[in-house]
């Protein structure tokens, strides 16, 4: 009797070890598969666009996309970057194809959809704003490697330190590169032309 129990116990342990090994192999294999594909940045999200409509990561698929994180209470980087993106898109002419751009607020507490809509309107139809709950914005920014830090200044006011690179995403949702702040205009134009053609 004793021997039988011992045999069952050993079989159980053996089965458990095999199960762990197989599970480990499968997980490892799927990880390797993920690593072998091109980098995909950005998490899923559920936010609001500058027209007040719901928007998700689905908006970044199917069309080549330019993403810029910023805020409306920024005196130089944000207006200059938005103007540059809008100018570049105009300059592409027909080569722009279905290229689209999004301005994602790093200061959603002050940047309501209405504020964003009014702010970006002069930069043309090609740029839409994205805002929403701060925690959701923070998750999205983090998934793009975008640094956001709220810094109090005087009088209870604050500013937001933030990554100012422009992200280029192809129509399959794959990250293709960045345009730096004040990057050479011709190089930036070439990058956008390439992105639109992919």
């Amino acid at each position: 009797m004793m021997g039988n129990w011992r045999r069952v116990l050993w079989l159980g342990i053996l089965a458990a070890v095999m199960a762990v090994a197989i599970a480990g192999y499968v997980v490892n294999r799927s990880n390797q598969q993920q690593a072998s594909t091109a980098p995909v940045l950005g998490s899923a999200f559920s936010l609001i666009d500058s027209d007040g409509a719901a928007i998700t990561e689905a908006a970044f698929f199917g069309r080549p996309t330019v993403l810029f994180f910023g805020f409306t209470q920024c005196p130089e980087i944000c207006p200059v970057s938005l103007f540059e993106i809008s100018t570049l898109m105009d300059e592409l002419g027909p080569e722009k194809r279905d290229l689209q751009a999004f301005f994602i607020s790093v200061d959603p507490e002050r940047d309501s959809p209405a504020v964003m809509g009014e702010y970006i309107a002069p930069f043309g139809e090609n740029i839409r704003g994205i805002t929403g709950p701060l925690s959701a914005i923070e998750t999205l920014a983090q998934s793009w490697g975008v640094y956001i830090k709220k810094v109090p200044i005087d009088d209870g006011d604050y500013t937001v330190d933030h990554t100012a690179s422009v992200f280029l995403v192809d129509r399959h949702g794959q990250f293709r590169g960045t345009i730096a702040y004040r990057e050479n205009h011709q190089i930036a134009l070439d990058k956008l032309r390439l992105l639109a053609s992919l």
């Binding site: 409306t72 209470q73 920024c74 005196p75 207006p79 702010y119």
Partner: peptide, 11 residues
């Protein structure tokens, strides 16, 4: 720099 209608700051 000119500001847009929604802007609350200027440089």
């Amino acid at each position: 720099r000119e500001t847009t209608a929604g802007a609350r700051v200027g440089g």
